[in-house]
């Protein structure tokens, strides 16, 4: 079986794209912690439920960014092919 240099680069790009999505672990943990703390806060102070939910969602949306950077890197590796 012949593997040309081009194919090798594409294969390595696909592996790199998969590795880039490991970045999804961090935001997952962080969002989970935020949601847990939000649930605890609602348990202590049910009257402030809407404020807590808004703050939690805002923080989670910002915390998501690092995972999305991983997604962007993976998409660039897969579809833009900067090394091909």
């Amino acid at each position: 079986m012949n593997i040309s240099g081009q194919d090798f680069i594409y294969g390595c790009s696909a592996i790199g794209a998969g590795l880039a999505l490991i970045a999804g672990i961090g935001p997952g943990v962080g969002q989970g912690i935020a949601a847990g703390q939000g649930a605890a806060a609602v348990g202590r102070n049910p009257g402030a439920k809407s404020d807590i939910t808004t703050t939690m969602l805002l923080g989670q949306a910002v915390a998501e960014t690092t995972g999305l950077y991983g997604l962007v890197v993976a998409i660039i590796l897969m579809f833009v092919k900067p090394f091909g």
């Binding site: 949306a61 910002v62 998501e64 960014t65 999305l68 950077y69 997604l71 962007v72 998409i75």
Partner: peptide
Amino acid sequence: ISISLRLFANLLSGVI
């Protein structure tokens, strides 16, 4: 760069 990438990547993931 960070606020534009955040918006872009969220929407792009939805489109994908």
